[in-house]
Design a protein around this nucleic acid. Structure first.
Length: 282
DNA sequence: CTAGGATCCTGTCAGC
DNA sequence: TGCTGACAGGATCCTA
């Protein structure tokens, strides 16, 4: 899905647009994209927006929660006086809603709408009560947010996965929350670490630098409104600017490294496309 | 317990 | 043009 910075961008954008709006109706176009009973949300207001890792959490006035996982291709689109689309781009901003990838949408009492689009159907919205949220298997094993992690805890975590490639470990949400394929590559570049190195091979200093890199790179992405791909648009419809402005390696294979001038290369680590600079990363 | 691979689904693109 | 395989900003399930 969009990674932590993109979900945070969605949270901030939607907070301004849907807070305290009353849901008049829910339309489910794809059964597997919505878990729970629509009756639990109809007539409720959206009172609060939170985020944990890559999960978006919306609290309703009856104290139930809607948890949205955007996974690979999910996006949220608000249509009202203004339009806001964020997540996976896929024509969300320009296409007439509901579109061919709309899976669920909400009509608000004031005539505005919120659409959940998801091309690959990996994502979903789940309606849960307080207990269900507390017992959710994903949230339960989700590690702390990067900035809430102490460097010694991060180091200790790496020691528990000595033989695994560093990238596989930081992508695992039970080790650190919110890191996805872009920021894993960017964080490794920041720390000067080749992503396939085994955790047990890292020095303590490299571990500290990697945690710092993940925090800085994701904070910078939030500050600039989330990264963008050909189909990523942020909540108010303007394009995010992280990738074009700040990405050092992600999807830059074949291009010159901005730091050393060498060529960025691409390989496969932990089953994912992985970008790195031979000159800058050891 | 860990690590690695297949899998869920739709769409696009490169190469024949 | 039409087909085929690879790949895609994620997470889970199964296997060794």
């Amino acid at each position: 899905m969009p990674e932590l910075p993109e979900v945070e961008t969605i949270r901030r954008g939607l907070e301004k647009l849907i807070l305290h709006k009353k849901i008049k109706n829910v339309v489910i176009l794809c059964e597997k994209s919505f878990r729970g009973d629509p009756k639990w949300v109809v007539g409720q207001k959206m009172d609060r927006l939170d985020r944990r890792g890559k999960a978006l959490l919306i609290q309703l006035s009856n104290k139930m929660w809607m948890m949205a996982h955007l996974r690979m291709t999910g996006q949220m689109i608000f249509e009202g006086g203004e339009k806001f689309a964020a997540g996976h781009p896929d024509g969300g901003f320009t296409e007439k809603m509901p579109g061919r990838h709309t899976r669920v949408y909400f009509d608000f009492e004031d005539g505005t709408h919120l659409y959940f689009n998801d091309q690959r159907k990996f994502g979903f919205i789940a309606v849960l009560d307080e207990l269900g949220l507390a017992e959710d298997s994903f949230l339960k094993k989700l590690a702390p947010e990067p900035w809430d992690m102490k460097s010694e805890d991060f180091w200790g975590m790496l020691q528990r996965h000595k033989s695994a490639p560093i990238k596989a470990v930081i992508l695992d949400q039970s080790n650190i929350a919110g890191v996805g394929n872009i920021y894993a590559d960017e964080g490794c570049f920041y720390a000067g670490i080749l992503p396939w190195r085994r955790c047990g091979d890292l020095e303590r200093e490299e571990s500290d630098l990697l945690l710092k890199g993940l925090c800085e790179v994701m904070q910078a992405a939030i500050d600039s409104g989330g990264s963008t791909m050909k189909d990523y648009v942020r909540a108010d419809g303007t394009k995010g600017s992280y990738l074009e402005k700040f990405a050092q390696v992600f999807r830059r294979d074949g291009l010159e490294c901005r730091r050393c001038g060498g060529m960025i290369e691409k390989t496969r680590v932990a089953g994912r496309g992985t970008h790195y600079c031979r000159g800058c990363q050891k």
